[in-house]
Every structure is written in structure tokens, then in C-alpha cells.
Design a protein around this nucleic acid. Structure first.
Lengths: 332, 332
DNA sequence: GGGCGTGATTGAAGCGTTACAATCGACCGA
DNA sequence: TCGGTCGATTGTAACGCTTCAATCACGCCC
């Protein structure tokens, strides 16, 4: 069970510890002959450098990057996680998974843990941005990049999605399909997602020269399938029924689709439906759902890149905004 | 930027480093007065113990546990990840996320990394079990628990799902609903999942006293929605059409459902459908899909528990097999 | 008053590595 | 032959903490 250390290698190769260390870190500084001898000893003994000790000397950081997310089970977030992990893996930086459930105390606990492990940094979907923990982390030398956060923050890098553009694309698509009356089904209006996507929808209408009230806005209490079903019922009973509906997320859209099926409406002939987020279920819905794809994978990758970039000399904090892209499927 | 160390605390509290360490690790060994003084100094200076240094002394392990999965984006695996993370978090053990894409070389790289970080252990969906890396990890003191692996392995703990029982439950459910002719749509027969779920289906029929050929088996080339659609077409053209179909996974089931919709069949009245895995899309399908839920969250939690248990005195290696449970929804 | 036991406190070694300054030895030109 | 160079190699302090044996202070009992 006793681990073999640099000392054992040195002994077997008949050189000093320093030389072994040099073979490992600056091979060119070592005469070819000795290098070979040392390398053989390493092989034979199966020596593996102890990273913990390396870190202690300060020469290396653990490279660990915290991935502080609400919940990996959220498909969008697991896409982000995967993108970040892929990029960091190629850079040799391990990733620590931290689920916060949007609870500030869990978030704080994790950030503290990261500091203790002296991690290289963290990618965070912030549950609680106010508390000035940002500075705390920075003081301990941690890099921070914010994921999909609400608003720009000048002192930190962040990545986000341009929801206005995404909604614009969705509604423009419906207009191009010839729909005259369009409905917009959304979640609570106090959420940024709702507001941005409404703004995008209006922008599309304006650009097409339609009156603003051509949009029938249906607000629900949550971004769920169930609320989508109810919104669908409301839509169908209205006198001048919309022929195309844009939903502020896929779950709402799937709910609307379920009501449409029950009412024996044909999608897309009787009712065209467009969702948002392009979750996995969108492609596998009863009628595959046209949706706005937000590219979590690329987002995660970009965030990781920003994090790595913080260590480079001329770094300035940036906010990357990703334009989402419409995936056309059979529902529209 | 200079981190405050135990030395600074000692200085400020007017005691030795050893005493500070004692306050932290064995508070009862320190006189109340001094303890208070030290604690105050810790607070004032905002001292946080450096775990790296702690590990180097050998008194603590990093506690890090590797989560070596095919891909977190797979909903089943992210459920597992979340379950494992939750349990390990309460135990104070951080989790390192490792996506292997079923590539032995990535797997190997990660396991090596875990060894270098001297992690406490790893939960692994093994891409390459043959290579005897298991012993390699063990030799370095890592605990290993296998996730959802094919077969029992006497020298290691593992968790798995009882697919035979799950399929049995699904078919029994269809029989109870009065379906006489039942179809079984599955993926490639060389995969364990296909074979186990077929075996379970047959078991259910036998127990109900039906002839074995009451089951119309449709094999496809992959567990995808697209293959499901094709299987659905085949099912509908057959002369004596099945009234109930059990699909070996939800994607196949959703594909079958799509063909049913296009053929203007009513689900479940004209065709009852049951899936397997209970992925998120199941609940949000056009008609919510009855499915067999495999409880990835609990699986992950159990695996983490087994891992922690390895350190306890009388540990023996175990294989935990979870019975899945049928979730009845409107499609059957 | 001297010897002791007890609880509190401390000094210093050690964990496995890195990096810097010091040493070594061979070779060169004068 | 001797100082001077230069590349290769090495001794060792340092990283921040834990731990154990050693020390200290104090009060008690004979």
C-alpha cells in the first residue's frame, strides 16, 4: 500500500531527487543518458507524481474548477456541464460537480469548499449574487465566470443567451408561415425569461409591420406542462382563435400540444406550435416540436474558455451573449 | 492575495501553531479561555484551513469521489449523478465529474487522474472492465463501486436494475388491462437490456398462463425514436394487430406513439403503449406515457452509500439490485 | 518543602514535491 | 598549467499543516 515517491525513483536511478524532478518538469535540462535511466526507474516502479504535494509547493494549482449549478438533471444545465467538462478536460483541469438547488446556503458551502481545495475557479449559475461572495472568492485567487445570469456585471466574465433574439426568430418564423393571429404563452412575467421573450416577439411583429395587439399574450403561473395545458384550453375557447402559438418554453408548448390533441386539432394544420429551449422531449413529442435551441453545450464550453483566459496576461472581463437558433420541426 | 495561515492565527492569538491546530481538531484538549481567543483570531483574520496541506500530512484524504459516467447528458445518468452527489455532499465528500463517452482511453485517463489526486474512490459505469484497472485503483487505495454494470463481479460492490422484473411488471400491467395480443418492441438483441426485458415479458405471459407465442417480438437496430416509428409501421400493417405494445425503452415507445398519431389511432383506446426508463419526455408526451421507472437517483445514492461503507470495519462486497416500478399514465 | 500527577501548551519533525543556489567536473583558451 | 565557462547535478529550504513527545505551571499530598 505504500506509495512510491520521488525518493524511491531517485534511489533506484542512482540520482538525486532534484534530478528526478527535473526529468519530470524540465527534461531538456537533463543529460539524455540520465534522463533515460530515470525514466526507466519511473516505469519499473510505477511512479505517479503526487499532485497534492505539487500543489503545496505552489508551483501548480489543483486546476480544479467548480461547476456550481442549480441541478444537473436540468437538461440545459447538463448540456452546459458537458461542454465545460469537455473543454476543461483537454486543458487537464478536473471539474467538481456542485448542485445548489438555488439555495444560497448550499451555494455558499460549495464555494467555501472550493476555496479550501484551492480550486482554480468556478462556473456559477448564481443563486445569490448580492452577498459579495464574489470578492471573497477573488481574494482567494479563484476565477469566476457567471453562467446564464440575469444581467451584465462589469467585474466578472459571464455568458448568456440572447432571449430577445431567440423569441424574435420564433415569431418571425410563424409570420413567414403565414400566420395572422399569433398567441404568446409564457410563464410569470416577473421572470426575465418571460419579459425578454415577450420583447422579442413584439420586435418581430413590429418589424413585420403588424400592430402590437396582433399578439395574444397568455401568462401562466409557471413554466410547466400542466400550465401549458390550461393555457391551451384558454386559447381554444377564445373567439378569434390564433393559428400559431409561440410558447416561452418547451414544457408549455408540450402542454398546449396535448390540449390540441385532445381537442382533435391537427398540428400544425389547425394550430402551429413553436417552443423554446429545445429540450430533448421537443424532438420526441407526438408531433416533433419546432423550438429555439439555446446551445447549452457551446455555452458551457465558452464559459470554460473565459475562465481559462482569466489567467492570460491581457485579460479583460467580458460578457458573451449567444444567439439561439431556431430548429424547425413538424409542429409548425 | 497572501493567504492567512495557521501561523498568522497563532501569532494574533498569542499561542503556538500546535494550539491553533488543536482548537480546530481537538477542541476539548484546549482550555476554554485560549480556545476562545484562538477562535476570535480565526474569525477576525478570516482564516480557512488549507486542505491541500492537511492532505499532505496524511491525516485526511481529499475525500474526492470520481463520478465516471458515459455522459451526464443522459437523463438516467444525470439522475444517478445527482443522487450520488447529494449523499456525498452530506458526508462532506466532493464529487469530480468524468465523462467517458464509453471510450476506454478517456476512462483510463480519468482514473489515473483520480489516483493522482488521491481521491477516496470512484463510482463507475465501466467502459472497459477487462483491463484489470480495478486492481490498479485498489492498490492505490481507491474504493470502487460499479454502476448499472452488466454482471456481478465478486470483488467489488455494484448497483444495478432488475430489468427482468421491470419488464414483467409492464407486461403484467397490459394483461391486467385486458389486452390479448401484445407486442414487444426492442432494440438489438445482443444487448443485455433487450434480452432481460424480453425474458421479463415472457415470464409475465407464462405466469398468466398464456402461450409464449402470444408475444409479437419486433426487433429494431437501435433504441431510438426513429426506429420506434418504423417498428410502429410494421406493427400496424400486421394482420392480427396487437392492442397493447410494450417497448424496451421510452424512445421506441414515443416513436410508436408518433406513428399511431399519424395513423389516427387513439391512444390508449386503439393502441395501449408502455415504455421503459421513464425519461422526462415520457410524462410530457402527446399522451403521457406509462413507463417503467428505474430510479436513477436512488441508484446513485445507494452506490455512494456502498462506497462510503467500504471504509467501515466489517465491509463485504455487495451487489444491490433495484426493482424498477411501473408509473401508470394515460397511454395504457 | 519536596515530589508528583494532571492538564495545558509547545517545538520540531515530517508529509512529497519544487526551485534556487551551490557544487562538480570537463573542457577551453591563454 | 591555471583560471574561467558552462552544462549537469545536487543539497536543502520552503509550502501549511498535524502530531507526538517534551515541557511547563500549578496545586496536592505526605
Amino acid at each position: 500500500m505504500n506509495t512510491v515517491g520521488i525518493k524511491d525513483v531517485a534511489l533506484r536511478a542512482g540520482v538525486s531527487m532534484a534530478t528526478v524532478s527535473n526529468v519530470l518538469n524540465r527534461p531538456d535540462k537533463v543529460a539524455p543518458g540520465t534522463r533515460e535511466r530515470v525514466e526507466e526507474a519511473i516505469d519499473v516502479l510505477g511512479y505517479v507524481p503526487n499532485m497534492v504535494a505539487q500543489q503545496l509547493t505552489g508551483s501548480r494549482s489543483s486546476g480544479m474548477v467548480g461547476l456550481v449549478l442549480f441541478d444537473v438533471r436540468n437538461p440545459f444545465l447538463s448540456d452546459i456541464a458537458r461542454g465545460a467538462e469537455d473543454l476543461l478536460h483537454t486543458a487537464g483541469q478536473p471539474v467538481m460537480l456542485c448542485n445548489t438547488d438555488v439555495l444560497p446556503e448550499k451555494e455558499e458551502r460549495y464555494l467555501k469548499l472550493l476555496a479550501q481545495q484551492n480550486a482554480a475557479g468556478a462556473l456559477v449559475t448564481p443563486a445569490d449574487l448580492s452577498k459579495g461572495w464574489l470578492d471573497g472568492l477573488r481574494a482567494r485567487g479563484l476565477r469566476v465566470v457567471l453562467l446564464d445570469n440575469t444581467d451584465a456585471h462589469p467585474e466578472v466574465c459571464s455568458v448568456a443567451v440572447d432571449d430577445v433574439a431567440g423569441a424574435d426568430a420564433a415569431v418571425t418564423h410563424l409570420l413567414a408561415r403565414g400566420h395572422q393571429r399569433i398567441a404568446f404563452v409564457t410563464g410569470p412575467m416577473h421572470m426575465r425569461q418571460s419579459r425578454d421573450r415577450l420583447a422579442g416577439s413584439r420586435r418581430a411583429l413590429e418589424r413585420a409591420g403588424r400592430p402590437a395587439d396582433a399578439l395574444n399574450v397568455v401568462e401562466t403561473s409557471a413554466f410547466t406542462v400542466d400550465q401549458g395545458r390550461r393555457a391551451g384550453e384558454r386559447l381554444l375557447t377564445v373567439s378569434e382563435r390564433a393559428s400559431g402559438v409561440f410558447c416561452a418554453n418547451d414544457l408549455l408548448a408540450l402542454g398546449v400540444m396535448q390540449t390540441a390533441f385532445r381537442a382533435e386539432l391537427r398540428v400544425p394544420d389547425d394550430l402551429a406550435i413553436v417552443g423554446y429551449d429545445d429540450i430533448h422531449s421537443a424532438a420526441t413529442a407526438g408531433v416533433p416540436l419546432t423550438s429555439v435551441h439555446v446551445g447549452g453545450y457551446e455555452l458551457g464550453k465558452a464559459a470554460a474558455e473565459l475562465l481559462l483566459d482569466e489567467d492570460r496576461p491581457g485579460h479583460t472581463h467580458r460578457r458573451l451573449v449567444f444567439p439561439p437558433r431556431l430548429i424547425e420541426r413538424r409542429s409548425s
